[in-house]
Design a protein around this nucleic acid. Structure first.
Length: 576
RNA sequence: CGGAGCGUAGCGCAGUCUGGUAGCGCGUUUGGUUCGGGACCAAAAGGCCGAGGGUUCAAAUCCCUCCGCUCCGACCA
């Protein structure tokens, strides 16, 4: 390929709306352009890398025995109504009507669609187990798209679904996909780590997310250097010892005018935030519940949802807070709320807590010397792990202090059990002519997100540093003087020799000064750069340099041997 | 959905407070000098100043409404 025919446009300035390096580089290097908020067009360079990632995903799915299919993006509402997710997914789905007023959604995922499909195709145990997958555009009406391809309204996802006869089979399918994912990310040149996660609305319990550790990541990961424990903060368990504070004098009111947040009250009273009890009123399936955690902690809504067995959990509105407690948010507490029947639960770190400060359920006042067991109606069974883990907490596995890192989720594997197959009555006949429900698993890779995660993990001040396996072109021949026939001939012959060896090659044949070509080659991040110029040729040959290496490592070889050297370098890079 | 900020040439921005001929840098085109890490000179093209309404002799600028984008928060298979 010749640069002048390839529609490559690099930008010297960062786009004004990009925050993180990978987003800036995606646009500057000419891989994508924004069409609208959360929507991107892929230019030829971005398309090439996307296709290479897709090919790796396909190869690994095929190797794992999965079968490629493709299903419609436009999915009828009745599929979603069958599981109730038409309502629970709610505003996250792009919903529309056709001219006959039939409702449909642009698929955000495809559990319903695939279960309905497989139900109609599979009837016998002889057809099981089976895993199908597709690489298809998905749509989510994100409340806040951001960071380029990282969280967009439209994104490319590989989604696979396994159907098994029994739990043991489902377990095998899960492990097979887990292993395939490790291979996929490794082949993309990504360091992705599996972490324990919460299943959310998807179904059963067993699930792992694959994360690329990066400061720009949107998820917090509890990380133990000691034993290798890794879990999404949504999931990471805590096992705090009970407070065991001992007796304290009776509680009394303290005026704390205007001090609403823990930080404000702590500063006002000159006490540490840990001595406070943070009390929040949640609306859980429509009913108010007060949740108490230590003042230096946050409520973990995922844990709360699980503990209460609730379908929806959200902070209650101010009116509900006032009705439940008698005070406005900022001054609420577990002692004698206005609604005596208000359910109150507390984090297990507060078991045995005494001498604490809470809101007084009276605007402008707090209570000191509160003994939770003595002064509140929290039942013994109302204590549970409800707070989000933090750095320094004991690892639930080995007890050593954990660290908290940031991660970009590039894939997730789930065991779904029978949540979907039961809803759709997706059954098969076993060898005893009995009707059995299939056991399901689902497995997603964010293909477009992976593209950006690679850049986030592999770049420097000059630009992207592509792994050879997914670089848009593996080698860039910088032809320094395209009008000199001898140099142009060398470049052409080298390109042909490289393509014959399976190395994707582009010749920078622009009439530009060398510095411009070097800067652009670094910005786009081709793994190997070959400089062909009259001066170099007169001095012994062409120059070959790896993007990830320093200029001082440049190899000078005669034109006749260049293709072999480059091909060997690429091959070594591909092996990692 | 709450809070904040921003919409001016392909990209990055100034001009808006204090109304008076629409600017700068990059990129693009042409000519010339250059030529190994984003050269220089000269010339040129390119704008419904987000949209609609209002005030005014006069609106990018002031007022109203709407739309879009970005950040923080809430939310998130």
């Amino acid at each position: 390929m010749r640069w002048t025919k390839s529609l490559i446009t690099t930008l010297r300035d960062n786009p004004g709306d990009a925050e993180i390096d990978s987003h800036k580089l995606l646009v500057r290097a000419g891989l994508v352009r924004k069409t609208a908020g959360g929507l991107y067009s892929y230019l030829p360079l971005g398309m090439r890398t996307l296709e290479k990632i897709k090919r790796i995903v396909k190869e690994e799915m095929d190797r794992a025995g999965a079968l490629e299919i493709v299903m419609p993006i436009l999915q009828p509402a009745e599929l979603w109504r069958t599981t109730g997710r038409w309502d629970t997914m709610g505003a996250n789905m792009f919903k529309l009507r056709d001219r006959a007023e039939r409702e449909a959604a642009l698929g955000p995922t495809a559990e319903e669609e695939v279960t309905d499909l497989v139900k109609g195709v599979v009837g016998s145990y002889r057809q099981l187990p089976v895993t199908v997958y597709q690489i298809q555009w998905k749509f989510r009406d994100e409340t806040r798209p951001r960071f380029g391809l990282m969280r967009s309204k439209e994104f490319l996802m590989k989604d696979a679904y396994s159907f098994d006869r029994d739990a043991e089979g489902a377990d095998r399918s899960y492990r097979t996909m887990y292993a395939a994912y490790e291979r996929i990310f490794a082949r993309c040149g990504l360091k992705a780590v599996p972490v324990q996660a919460d299943g959310g609305d998807m179904g059963d319990s067993m699930t792992h997310e694959f994360h690329v550790l990066a400061d720009a990541g949107e998820d917090g990961i509890a990380w133990c250097e000691g034993c290798g424990y890794a879990a999404n903060l949504e999931k990471a368990g805590r096992t705090p010892p009970p407070a065991d504070d001992g007796p304290c004098p009776p509680f009394e009111e303290v005026a704390t005018p205007g001090a609403k947040t823990i930080a404000q009250v702590a500063a006002f009273m000159g006490l540490a935030p840990e001595l406070f009890v943070k009390s929040l009123v949640y609306s859980c399936d429509g009913k108010p519940v007060m949740v108490c955690v230590p003042g230096d902690r946050d409520v973990n809504e995922v844990k709360l949802k699980r503990f209460l067995g609730a379908k929806t959990v959200a902070l209650a509105d101010f009116g509900a807070v006032l009705r439940a407690t008698g005070a406005n948010a900022g001054f609420v507490g577990p002692v004698k709320p206005a609604d005596p029947a208000l359910r109150i639960v507390a984090d297990s770190a507060l078991r045995g807590a005494a001498g604490r400060i809470t809101g007084a359920n009276k605007d402008g006042f707090h209570l000191k010397n509160v003994d939770l067991a003595r002064d509140t109606s929290i039942p013994a069974g109302g204590y549970a792990d409800l707070a989000t883990a933090a750095a320094g907490d004991a690892c639930p596995n080995c007890g050593k202090p954990i660290a908290v890192k940031r991660g970009i989720e590039v894939g997730q594997v789930f065991k779904l059990g029978t949540k979907y197959t039961e809803a759709f009555k997706a059954t098969y006949k076993n060898d005893k002519l009995e009707e059995k429900t299939m056991i399901m698993g689902c497995y997603g890779v964010g293909v477009s997100r992976t593209l950006q995660a690679v850049i986030e993990q592999s770049h420097d001040k000059d630009g992207i540093v592509w792994p050879a396996s997914i670089a848009p072109y593996q080698a860039c021949i910088c032809l320094l003087d395209p009008s000199a026939p001898d140099a142009a001939k060398v470049a052409d012959e080298l390109e042909q020799a490289l393509e014959a060896r399976g190395v994707d090659t582009i010749i920078d044949d622009r009439e530009e000064r060398p510095g411009v070509k070097f800067k652009d080659a670094d910005l786009i991040g081709f793994p190997v750069r070959v400089v062909v110029g009259s001066k170099g040729l007169a001095n012994g040959g062409v120059e070959i340099k790896l993007r990830r290496e320093d200029k001082s490592k440049t190899r000078i070889v005669p034109p006749s041997g260049a293709a072999e050297t480059v091909a060997a370098l690429i091959e070594a890079e591909m092996r990692g």
